[in-house]
Structures are given as structure tokens and as C-alpha cells.
Write a protein that binds this DNA or RNA. Structure first.
Length: 668
DNA sequence: ATAGGGTTAG
């Protein structure tokens, strides 16, 4: 053996059994050698230490680069292990490759290697490493790279800001940003984008809104007030804080706007409960800009707005536009279409659009599951949920919100409990406040209030207002004063300014004829200067959205609508309808109470729909609150008398009225 | 010298 100059030569002359742990290049060499081709030059170059290593290093660098480009990370690493003289470029390629291949352990290995080879203080590589760890979700190591590097260029700072912002570590970014300013490193245009993002990705609430405003001031002071990217991020920041006004001001003052800026503002309206404004702005964009074409992101927000308004006609127009533009190939757009059709009451269309997709992700499935859920088709929703898993897509936390919600609307208590169990056990998803709230809803509505209360007691996280709110809502349905008092006491602490909670409690007391308590709660409401969110309903007629408030004296059609409702209610009374005047708490006589009931926004919208549509046409209405009991029974009657299908979507589900019955089977 | 940013479905 010792007589042979190199391992390669050994293999050549004694071809047989086990070619031991092959050093990186052996495979290649062996192949060419076996075919007896160009062996001598390359082989001797690498194996002969007499020949300059630097030539070999450049060569190997080249090989590493080629391997990285081809995604052959493992082989590239094997070459690296033999590399006597790696360069910055070598490491850069490997780091990028590890990030792309999603391989944390290889990333760590490359990191260790570069530390051992004198690149531990290279700011360029530090930037790349931080980016890599960020992509591999290892924020601890990203931070460590930052802590250990002495020369922190703006690139290094920005990379860490970006990494922390993506990982929801907002407050940490703000803290570091302050330190950066103290050290005297000036921000650049990238810094502002990342830091603004950090303001909204944290739990800080108002505190960080203040911070965001400060940064807004920095931006203006440093002359970036006309920078499209930064200004758009600002619009989005205000949007996420719910400051629609501020977002609108920034947007309005932008000297230059592009598609992204318009999309951000449209999304702002769509996400903050102002769908009409979203559609209006979209129209404006189409009319006023000549060189800007809406893209898939724009369309998603526009479809959301249509969905929120149950504006089927507009939604169909948008669908047509999406097809013409070829945007129907983009996954989020199709999912938004599925949601739009489902929320406009066209489940069959939603299913059709879904069926035509040739690729589906978890969001597409969630759209369909929640679609069936809000329509009260609990079993179908569970079936779709199971099909999703069979198709190889694992459920996300939102999948469970959707499917649990479906169980809740359909009263499928046992199925819901089983799914909730499987969530942790099989899918390793830990329930969030929303999941618990859904379970409390499920049990509470089914009049299993004790079990619902027990769920809250056993929660491993702090039960937030959503959870207590669900319990209070259930107490309202089943008239449980004692539990309602417990839940509302917590709610008044957690969100003292939410009028809805006081109203619910007052409703419960009223139901129990506890008038003193009703008055006490009302006084509380007045003392805190709170007002109940006024009920509103919407209906689309000839592609125009009409909006109705309760007891809408300003509405130009009010007399006509009231007359029609009065006429219908007389007929209904003969048929056994009794106005639910007990839900009107004002101290009024019966006749006035009936008048108030008849003026509820959803009844006005139904009447408007009856007058303004052809006989037999379906009427679609959306409401911003829950449908009231009286409106529910009145709409049942109306659907029978007028032989109309009436779809009402309230805040949490669909009611499909037909021939005097509702699809919710009075369970809601 | 080199490097990177904004809007997105349930």
C-alpha cells in the first residue's frame, strides 16, 4: 500500500471490494477513471501537494459554487471540508444555500467552519448569517451573530431588525433602534421600513403606536417623506393600528403612488370594517390612474370587501376581471374568490371554484371549511376538513377555528370536542384564545354552561375577553344570570370600554325581569359615556350598496318601507306572530315598542329588497351585529308570505329563510 | 466593492 502515491491510485490498481468512506472527489474521479479517460491531469493536480494549493482552492471554490447552484448542498459541504483556503465568496454561497435548502444543521456547520477560518469578524458574512438564521427561524443564533460582531455596519443592524420583526419581536427592535441612534449610526431607507414593521408585530398596542408616530416624524425630518416604499409602510402601519384616518392622510399626501400604495390603502379599508370605502377607492384607482394595473394583492382586498358586503353582483364583476387578467392562477386570489362566493351565500359557486383549482394550500381548504361552517353545514365542514388531511395538507390553527366554528353553528358538540382533542394530540397545535372561545361557544350554546365554565377554569393561557364574551353570549341565550354576572365582572375589567358587554348583561337582566339591575347597568353605560354599536344592515341592489340604520328616520324611503312592514306584520299577527317587545328596554308603551322593533335595520333592508327586486328573486342582506329574535321570526314569516328566499348574514353566520323556516333551525 | 425593503387569502 505504502508504495502507492495516493488513495486514488490505490483504487485504480485494486478495483474490487469496498471503496471506503469516499473523500468528496473520489466519485467523480472514479467514474472518469473507470472509463479510462482523462484521468492523469486533474487527479494529479489535486493529489499532488507539490502543486500550488491556491490553484486547487480556486478550482474547488468553483466546484462549491456549481454545487450550490445545483442545490447539492451536501456535496458542497464535503468539498468544503477538504478546502484549505476558503474565501468569503465560498461561505456566502454556502450560507445562501443552507437558507434555501432549509437546513439549520448545515447552516450551523458552515457557521462553525467560518469562525474557525478567521471570518468571525466579517460584517458581510455576519449580515448573510443573520439573514440565514432568520429564514431558518432561529432568532437566538441570529441575535448571537449580531452580539459577537464588533464592526456593525448598517447592513448588520438592518438584517437584525428585519429578522426580529419577522419573528414578532417588535419591542426588541425598538430598543435596538434606540441604541443604534445613541451610537450615532444613521438610519437608511431600509431601516425605516423594518422598524415601522416592528411597531405593529408586537403586543405593545398603543405604546408602539406612539413609537410609530415618532418614527414617522424621524422619516419626515430626514427627507424621506416622498419615498414610496417607506410611505406605503407607514400607511400599512396606521392601518394595522386601526387608524384609518392617519393612513388616509399619509396616503393622500404621497407625492407619488404605485400599485402597492393603492393596495395598502384599499386593504386598510377592507380590514377595518369599511368595505364600501375599499370598493370606492378601487374604483377611483381604476379611473384616475392610467399606468397602474391592479395586481393579485389588490384583487384579494377588493374581493374581501365584496365578501364583507355580500355584494354578489360586484363580486361577479371582479371575478370576470380576475379571469381576464389571468389572476385566477394565483392561489390567494382563488381562495379569496371561494370566500367571496361563500360569504355571498353562493356555496355551490364557492365549491365549483374550489373544485377547479389544480393546486390547493391550507388557506384554500380553510376558505371552503368556513364557508360550510357559516351556512350551518357542520357535517359537511368536518368532511371537507378530513378530506384536506387525506389530501396531505396538515391543518393550521385557522383550520381548527373554522371547523370548530362549524360544529358550533350546527350544534355538533361531541364532534367538536373530539376535534379539539385531536388538535394537540395529533397535530401538535396548541389552542389559542380563539380556540378556547370557540369551545366555550360550542358548549355554551348547547346549554352545557357548566362544562363551558370548566373549560375556562382549566385553560393553560389567560382567558381573554373573547373567551368571557363567548360565555356571556351563551348566558344570554340560556338566561343564566349568575354565570353572566361572573363573566361580565371579568369583562368589565378587561375591556371597560366595550359597550356590547353592558348591553348583553342588561338584556339578560331584562329577560329575568330584574328591572333594577337593568337600570343599574344602563347607568354604568351612561357614566362611562359608552354607546352601543348601532345596528346596521346592507343590501346590494343593481350593483349599488344600500345601507340602513335602525329606526332610520333620515332614510328617504322610510315611510314606504314602514308601511310595507306594517301591512306584513298585521297579516303575521293573524298567523300567530307576537312582537317580541320585551327586548325593547325603553320605558315606552307597547305600540311604540312595536314601532321600534319594526324599525330594526334588517327589517328595513328586507322591505327595501322586496320592493326593489323582481318577484321570486333571492334577497341577500348583511348585518353588523347578531340578528335579533324578533327579526328572525318576522323574516321567517315574510319568506313564507312573499315566497322569497331571504339570506341574512349576521356577524357570525348565515340564516337562509325559505318557506317560513330558517336554515339555522332556530339554533344560533 | 459586495448585500436588502412596502401591499396578500381564513
Amino acid at each position: 500500500m505504502s508504495a502507492f502515491p495516493s488513495p486514488q491510485a490505490v483504487q485504480l490498481s485494486s478495483p474490487p471490494p469496498p471503496p471506503p468512506p469516499p473523500p468528496p472527489f473520489s466519485k467523480h474521479l472514479k467514474c472518469t477513471a473507470a472509463r479510462g479517460s482523462c484521468r492523469p491531469p486533474l487527479c494529479s493536480l489535486i493529489s499532488n501537494p507539490a502543486i500550488s494549493t491556491s490553484t486547487a482552492a480556486v478550482d474547488k471554490n468553483h466546484v462549491i459554487q456549481r454545487l450550490c447552484e445545483k442545490g447539492e448542498l451536501k456535496r458542497a459541504l464535503r468539498v468544503l471540508s477538504q478546502e484549505p483556503d476558503p474565501t468569503q465568496r465560498t461561505y456566502e454561497l454556502l450560507i445562501l444555500s443552507c437558507a434555501r435548502q432549509n437546513s439549520l444543521c448545515d447552516g450551523l456547520c458552515v457557521h462553525r467552519h467560518l469562525l474557525e477560518n478567521g471570518f468571525d469578524q466579517d460584517p458581510f458574512l455576519a449580515t448573510k448569517l443573520i439573514n440565514m438564521y432568520s429564514e431558518l427561524d432561529d432568532i437566538v443564533n441570529a441575535r448571537k451573530v449580531f452580539d459577537e460582531i464588533h464592526e456593525r455596519t448598517i447592513y448588520v443592524w438592518n438584517a437584525l431588525f428585519r429578522a426580529l420583526a419577522l419573528a414578532d419581536h417588535g419591542p426588541e427592535v425598538i430598543d435596538l433602534y434606540r441604541r443604534m441612534n445613541q451610537v450615532g449610526i444613521p438610519s437608511d431607507r431600509f431601516t425605516y421600513s423594518y422598524v415601522l414593521k416592528a411597531c405593529v408585530v408586537s403586543e405593545g398596542g398603543l405604546l408602539l403606536l406612539k413609537k410609530g408616530r415618532e418614527i414617522h416624524a424621524h422619516i419626515l425630518r430626514h427627507g424621506y417623506g416622498g419615498h414610496v416604499h417607506i410611505m406605503t409602510t407607514l400607511v400599512d402601519m396606521y392601518a394595522r393600528f386601526g387608524c384609518v384616518k392617519c393612513a388616509g392622510i399619509v396616503f393622500g399626501e404621497m407625492p407619488e403612488k404605485n400599485v402597492v400604495s393603492w393596495s395598502a390603502m384599499i386593504a386598510c379599508y377592507a380590514k377595518n370594517g369599511m368595505p364600501c370605502e375599499a370598493l370606492e377607492l378601487f374604483r377611483k384607482m381604476m379611473l384616475e390612474t392610467h399606468d397602474l394595473l391592479p395586481n393579485s394583492v389588490t384583487m384579494v382586498s377588493v374581493l374581501q370587501a365584496c365578501a364583507a358586503l355580500a355584494a354578489l353582483e360586484q363580486g361577479r364583476l371582479i371575478h370576470g376581471y380576475v379571469l381576464r387578467r389571468g389572476l385566477d392562477l394565483i392561489l390567494p386570489v382563488i381562495s379569496a374568490l371561494v370566500t367571496m362566493y361563500a360569504r355571498c351565500g353562493k356555496l355551490d359557486r364557492a365549491q365549483q371554484v374550489f373544485d377547479k383549482m389544480d393546486e390547493r394550500d391550507v388557506v384554500s381548504w380553510n376558505s371552503l371549511i368556513s364557508g360550510y361552517g357559516v351556512h350551518g353545514f357542520g357535517e359537511k365542514a368536518i368532511q371537507v376538513f378530513k378530506e384536506m388531511i387525506i389530501s396531505g395538507i396538515s391543518p393550521s390553527p385557522i383550520s381548527f377555528i373554522s371547523v370548530l366554528g362549524a360544529c358550533c353553528h350546527a350544534g355538533l358538540v361531541e364532534d367538536g370536542k373530539k376535534l379539539f382533542d385531536s388538535m394537540v394530540r395529533e397535530h401538535r397545535i396548541f389552542p389559542s384564545v380563539e380556540h378556547y372561545a370557540s369551545m366555550v361557544d360550542l358548549l355554551g350554546r348547547a346549554n352545557r354552561l357548566d362544562e363551558a365554565a370548566k373549560i375556562i377554569e382549566e385553560m393553560r393561557i389567560e382567558p381573554g375577553p373573547k373567551v368571557w364574551g363567548s360565555l356571556l353570549g351563551s348566558c344570554r341565550i340560556h338566561c343564566n344570570v349568575e354565570l353572566a354576572e361572573r363573566a361580565s365582572a371579568r369583562l368589565f375589567e378587561l375591556e371597560p370600554m366595550n359597550a356590547g358587554n353592558y348591553v348583553l348583561l342588561a338584556d339578560i337582566y331584562a329577560e329575568a325581569q330584574m328591572w333594577d339591575e337593568v337600570r343599574r347597568v344602563k347607568k354604568l353605560l351612561e357614566a362611562r359615556r359608552l354607546q352601543k354599536v348601532p345596528g346596521r344592515s346592507w343590501i346590494e341592489v343593481k350593483r349599488k350598496i344600500h345601507s340602513f340604520a335602525s329606526v332610520d328616520e333620515l332614510n328617504p324611503h322610510i315611510e314606504q318601507l314602514h308601511a310595507l312592514l306594517l301591512k306584513l306584520s298585521m297579516e303575521m299577527k293573524e298567523d300567530g306572530y307576537v312582537p317580541q317587545t320585551k327586548i325593547v328596554h325603553y320605558d315606552l308603551d307597547l305600540e311604540e315598542k312595536e314601532r321600534i322593533l319594526l324599525g330594526h335595520s334588517e327589517k328595513l333592508a328586507v322591505a327595501f329588497g322586496l320592493i326593489n327586486s323582481a318577484e321570486g328573486e333571492t334577497i341577500r342582506i348583511t348585518k353588523n351585529l347578531r340578528l335579533c329574535e324578533d327579526c328572525h321570526s318576522v323574516t321567517k314569516f315574510i319568506s313564507k308570505y312573499t315566497k322569497r328566499e331571504i339570506l341574512v348574514r349576521d356577524v357570525n353566520r348565515f340564516h337562509c329563510f325559505k318557506d317560513g323556516v330558517c336554515s339555522c333551525r332556530d339554533y344560533w
